[in-house]
Design a binder for these strands. Structure first.
Lengths: 203, 203
DNA sequence: AAAAATAATAAACAGTGTTCATTTTAATAA
DNA sequence: TTATTAAAATGAACACTGTTTATTATTTTT
């Protein structure tokens, strides 16, 4: 009687196949430059078949969005070994930045791209994203227990820290540093990040 | 003998007409959702005509990009009346934020959208953008002369300040604050901006 | 083996940016 | 004023896009 189950398994496998192809193309070219037809061609199915497994391109967006956050959370795994909360916060920033420039297309989909309105706040993809964020809030909170960031609301400060990191990363990714000389440019991110860390340590 | 000149004037007028239509549509719908055909229809010309005045859609992007920065610089005009450099810096941040949420489509094109690689660094559109940025660096520099931000490179700090403002604004514009409760969300930007101003004052 | 259910697809629709041969309009010369 | 030349505008096409639907092929069930 394992028929229904096998059917369901096949279905999940097909979804997985589609997503793997989408993933591959997407990492190379970015979401907007990958068409349904591209994905279909890669898996040697017709474009219409994609629509039997995903409602529309947005649904693929969300799947990749979730995948990106999962990858991001894995990327943050080394944090577990850092006991001191402030050091962990700093390390977190460093990993954030490393991830950004190592997987720019993922960063794009995670934080920059116009995300479709209708997202399911209860999906496991969403939880994956929430996890990363609460990890930040937790470490900031822990810092406060150790005497850092006195008199500052940890949630607000967390958002401010995230904003700063995101600002630097997204301006770089979206080529808004051309106001700086070629040489200056590459070091601007490093220098400002260094300054940011210093400011945090004196807060 | 003013024939060549009139021709050139007509040409500029037509470019202006196209740009005005593009502008209007764009402010409503955003760049990606405005097609060449939309613009053509609005000015009652054929789509092909647009290409007699603009090389491609990117060239229209740049024109609007320049326009946005011009508008932004005008928006910053009130700064001239603020003598104290630190107060001026704060006011600049407030205007930056106000501009962002008043003209989100412009902000998008200025700082978020993937800008085409081939931009002319010597164009007047570009200078307009540079002006806003050097205004920031100048005011930060002036702050230092008054004793603020001791021991910090003003250019680096300027970028860090910009990054923070951009981070908050762009995360909000791109709907990345859904991790916060509906009620909390609307106040998060205000609270973090307030905290940022406080941090700056103690730097 | 026939009937019912499922899966895959070809073809079409309405849209996109862009190009080019053709036609219309305007300026010049006879 | 008319014929010729130069400029401006366009219709139609190309190669794409996301998406839908009627049709065909494949399984599963009777």
């Amino acid at each position: 009687m394992g028929l229904k189950e096998r059917k369901e398994r096949d279905r999940q496998e097909m979804k997985e196949t589609i997503l793997q192809s989408a993933h591959q193309l997407f990492v190379d070219k970015g979401f907007d430059d990958v068409s349904i037809r591209n994905i279909a061609e890669a898996i040697e199915y017709s474009p219409a078949t994609i629509y039997l497994y995903f409602k529309d391109k947005n649904e693929i967006f969300y799947a990749l969005h979730g995948e990106a956050f999962k990858k991001f959370n894995e990327f943050l795994a080394p944090l577990a070994t850092v006991k001191d909360p402030f050091k962990r916060l700093i390390k977190m920033g460093e990993l954030y930045m490393e991830f950004t420039f190592k997987f720019p297309k993922y960063y794009d989909i995670m934080f920059i791209m116009q995300a479709p309105m209708d997202c399911d706040v209860n999906s496991k993809e969403w939880k994956e994203g929430e996890s990363a964020h609460s990890q930040l809030e937790n470490v900031v909170n822990e810092c406060q227990l150790q005497g850092y960031f006195k008199g500052k609301e940890y949630k607000t400060l967390s958002f401010l820290i995230w904003s700063t990191m995101h600002g630097m990363c997204s301006l770089a990714l979206r080529d808004r540093l051309k106001i700086y000389e070629e040489q200056e440019r590459s070091k601007m991110i490093d220098k400002s990040f260094k300054m940011f860390k210093q400011i945090l340590s004196e807060l």
